[in-house]
């Protein structure tokens, strides 16, 4: 199965490629684009990036596996990343993560059976002054408390 992005995606990748003196430089943005459309970086996405940028598949796979933001497996509708690094940990981050695990019944790296939420841990998210912090699909939620996390997860799970 070959995969190609939407027309908008095609246009976008053309623009991105034009920004750099080498096609290879568009590797990270192209992977991001594919992930935005598919939800994760599938084998087909890697094939597409490798074709479009004329890169060996092993190179693209090497890039995907180096960085943490590319999901190599399918993920839930929402991805919740809880910061586990020191500044957050010092002000309750550990408890927040425990609570998320208990409430969702999954461990980091897993997805709820209903496919709604994937729970992950993240390293320092540059929001240390307002910890504990997590991101939901790239949006920051700061100064977390058990109550606010309950409300957040309930909202995500009750969404259609």
């Amino acid at each position: 199965m070959t995969w190609t992005p939407s027309a908008a995606g095609q246009k976008r990748i053309d623009e991105i490629i034009a920004r750099y003196p080498s096609k290879m430089a568009a590797c990270l943005p192209a992977l991001r684009l594919a992930q935005e459309e598919i939800g994760h970086v599938s084998k087909e996405a890697i094939d597409w990036v490798s074709r479009r940028l004329e890169l060996p598949r092993a190179h693209v796979q090497g890039v995907v596996s180096f960085y943490t933001l590319y999901h190599q497996k399918p993920v839930g509708k929402h991805v919740v990343q809880v910061c586990r690094t020191l500044s957050c940990a010092l002000v309750g981050g550990e408890r927040i993560l425990d609570h998320c695990q208990k409430k969702l019944g999954i461990r980091p790296g897993e997805t709820t059976p209903d496919g709604k939420i994937t729970l992950e841990t993240a390293e320092c998210l540059a929001s240390c002054g307002s910890g504990p912090v997590l991101t939901v699909d790239d949006e920051f939620v700061e100064n977390l408390t058990i109550e606010s996390i309950d409300a957040l997860l309930d909202r995500l799970r009750s969404e259609p």
Binding site: A25, A26, L28, G62, T68
Partner: peptide, 23 residues
């Protein structure tokens, strides 16, 4: 140019490699 999630890319030469589409 958006990073891919790797602290090491804050190091200037790692950043350059990342900018060039490498690990």
């Amino acid at each position: 140019h958006r990073g891919g999630g790797a602290y090491i890319c804050g190091e200037e030469t790692a950043l350059l490699n990342s900018l060039e589409g490498k690990r």
